[in-house]
Write a protein that binds this DNA or RNA. Structure first.
Length: 326
DNA sequence: CAGCCGTGGGT
DNA sequence: TACCCAAGGCT
């Protein structure tokens, strides 16, 4: 949960997670749907799918959590950092754990001028993270550097005046602490116009499950997709539902518009009230994992990303129920 | 290996 | 408002 996510964000999710899945066995036995539901809102949903798989792998292999960094790394979702953190903190192994905080602390302490996220920069920082590991106290050392980075050696406005190791900090001595770590040149992110269908049929609404890989994998959504050049939003919606579900629809009145920023792009989502055309083929699983016509009161049972949860919540509050007369 | 993969809070 | 980036891993 803590991968790329702050402790303050994780904390309530962790509490709830441990109530739902108090043992590895319970997690391994749970359906993916429930796992994603408890994870909903935390983002990077492959972490939930991988943790679920890891629990099943542990139960299949002998019921015990691996206790060495080498064995931990064989679990899906556990890379060099996570394996090092667990092995050093929980099992006392003398191994490094380079996270965003330690990366920043070491880049300043040793004035690393290679971009921290470049392959060369990563290699240098891992080397530094291993070089001063105190035998028998690697866990405390790793945690101390993480906490220093989280509280004092912050990305902006680091509190160098109260830093316990400022006399050893090369960047501070040179007065360039805010220019370390060096970051890679940023790339501009695209902005897409997206259309999503609120398909109404006899008091129920159509939601579809995304394929298990990729963005929001395994989560449910109101079907639709990105607008293409020289295409209106209603045309986009009709095309997308034909492609994904093989259905012909009537696009009705526009509903709400939502804006959202993902890691690598932004979207403006335009929702439309839609109808399935009587007498035409039923929805099929063409480019979706699954589909269901659900009542508004049951939407909460289907894990969704933020935008689709907002759309669903709006439905629960109520939109005009006039499907049978159109 | 460079590009993907969410969301929230801080500035 | 817009941008940064966080207890990274996978393909």
């Amino acid at each position: 949960m803590l991968q790329q996510t702050r402790v303050e964000s994780v904390s309530p999710y962790f509490q709830r997670w441990m109530e739902h899945f108090p043992t590895i066995q319970k997690l391994a036995d749970a359906p993916l749907q429930e796992v994603l539901g408890v994870w909903e809102g935390l983002g990077y949903y492959s972490r939930a799918r991988n943790l679920h798989l890891a629990a099943r792998q542990v139960m299949a292999q002998g019921v015990a959590i691996p206790s060495t960094s080498r064995e931990l790394r064989r679990l899906p979702g556990v890379g060099r950092y996570t394996a090092g953190a667990i092995a050093s903190i929980a099992f006392g192994e003398n191994v490094a754990a380079l996270d965003g905080n330690i990366r920043r602390v070491l880049a300043r302490l040793f004035n690393v001028d290679l971009p921290a996220r470049s392959p060369q920069g990563e290699a240098r920082l891992w080397e530094l993270a291993e070089k001063y590991l105190p035998e028998g106290a690697a866990g405390d050392y790793n945690q101390a550097l993480m906490d220093l980075g989280a509280t004092i050696c912050t990305p902006r406005l680091p509190q160098c005046a109260v830093c316990p190791i400022k006399e050893f900090c090369q960047a501070f001595q040179l007065g360039i602490q805010e220019q370390r770590p060096v970051s890679l040149p940023k790339q501009s992110i695209p902005h897409y116009q997206v259309a999503a269908a609120v398909m109404q049929r006899g008091g129920r609404y159509l939601i579809t499950q995304r394929l298990l890989k990729g963005l929001l994998g395994g989560l449910w959504e109101f079907p639709g997709g990105k607008q293409e050049p020289n295409e209106t939003l209603p045309e986009c919606l009709a095309r997308e539902l034909q492609e994904e579900l093989g259905i012909q629809i009537k696009v009705g009145e526009p509903l709400n518009v939502y804006r959202h920023a993902y890691t690598h792009f932004r979207v403006t989502v335009h929702t439309f009230l839609c109808q399935w055309q009587e007498g035409t083929p039923e929805p099929q699983l063409i480019q979706v994992q699954d589909l269901v016509w659900t009542e508004p009161g049951e939407l909460a049972n289907y894990p969704m990303g933020k935008v689709d949860r907002q759309i669903a919540s709006q439905l629960v509050l109520g939109i005009p129920a006039r499907d049978t007369e159109i």
